[in-house]
């Protein structure tokens, strides 16, 4: 059974149709890269999965439970249960600036899970070690570089033990020399078989790490396939055009 099942997803902003009946599935332990030009609806699609956007039609099922079924959302309590299986990492990190790094990690589990507190400290320190920031536990986010902030944000998302981790252009706000440290953490997670959906402009990452690549354009999934297929032998004209444009930009840099 697929962990994420999306069928015929529809979403508009006013007259603008942003998602035009999108369907795809994600299997357990899969890493999916979502690529496509700006404005194609990648963020909207990702945000719909965690109910940051409300869709108008279609179905989203997470581990077989319907978040939306044919445009009908689940009841509030159930809805929260379903979205809690997913964690999200944002382009702009969205760390809580008034809390230290460790407090950022501990806030949600303490409030939401409400179990004995000692467990969280240990887990938080373990996760900070995992992202290479053990020495930053007690500093405020304002003292961190962009790459460090994003690694904290990943650790914070992991604190909730998500089944699926969503990334919306996690390295796009970073200076080029800082993207590597974040991508390394993500590669590590992929190796541990974390189920991930990653919206990204990093074509190398998509090629090297993803099991499957979705190419979106104008609110549709135009083409999907293994990285080899999609990058090596794209079938659709739109995919070819997009890839040659991005590759050209890349070599121009």
């Amino acid at each position: 059974m697929a962990v994420v099942e999306v069928k015929e997803l529809k979403k508009s902003f006013g007259p603008l149709e942003v998602l035009k009946r999108i369907s795809f599935e994600v299997e357990r332990n899969e890493v999916i890269a979502v690529i496509g030009p700006s404005g194609s609806g990648k963020s909207t699609m990702l945000r719909s999965l965690v109910h940051l956007e409300e869709v108008e039609g279609g179905t989203i099922a997470i581990q077989g439970e319907n978040l939306v079924l044919n445009g009908q959302y689940a009841k509030a309590k159930h809805l929260k249960e379903i979205t809690s299986k997913m964690g999200m990492v944002f382009q702009q990190f969205n760390l809580f600036p008034h809390l230290t790094v460790i407090q950022n990690l501990e806030l949600a589990p303490k409030l939401v899970k409400q179990r004995a507190e000692e467990g969280y400290r240990k887990r938080a320190m373990d996760l900070l070690a995992k992202v290479g920031l053990s020495d930053k536990a007690d500093v405020f986010p304002s003292k961190l570089s962009g790459g460090q902030k994003q690694r904290v944000a990943i650790a914070r998302a992991l604190m909730m033990n998500p089944e699926i981790l969503l990334f919306d252009e996690p390295t796009s706000a970073l200076d080029p020399e800082l993207t590597g440290e974040v991508l390394d953490v993500m590669k590590e997670l992929a190796k541990e078989h974390m189920t991930m959906i990653v919206v990204t402009h990093e074509m190398e990452f998509a090629r090297d790490v993803a099991d499957r690549v979705l190419f979106m354009d104008q609110g549709e999934i135009v083409e999907e396939g293994s990285p080899d297929e999609l990058f090596g032998n794209p079938k659709k004209e739109r995919t070819k055009a997009f890839l040659s444009r991005t590759m050209r930009n890349r070599s121009a840099e």
Binding site: V50, H51, L52, K80, T83, S84, M86, G87, M88, F90, Q92, N94, L95, F96, L107, A108, L111, V112, R156, A157, M160
Partner: peptide
């Protein structure tokens, strides 16, 4: 920033928790 509300929501905080803690 609206990202603060979004991060709180995705982490599972309810409205009251988001207001008082974030």
């Amino acid at each position: 920033d609206k990202g603060q509300y979004e991060a709180a929501q995705v982490l599972g905080l309810n409205r009251w928790q988001t207001t008082t803690k974030v």
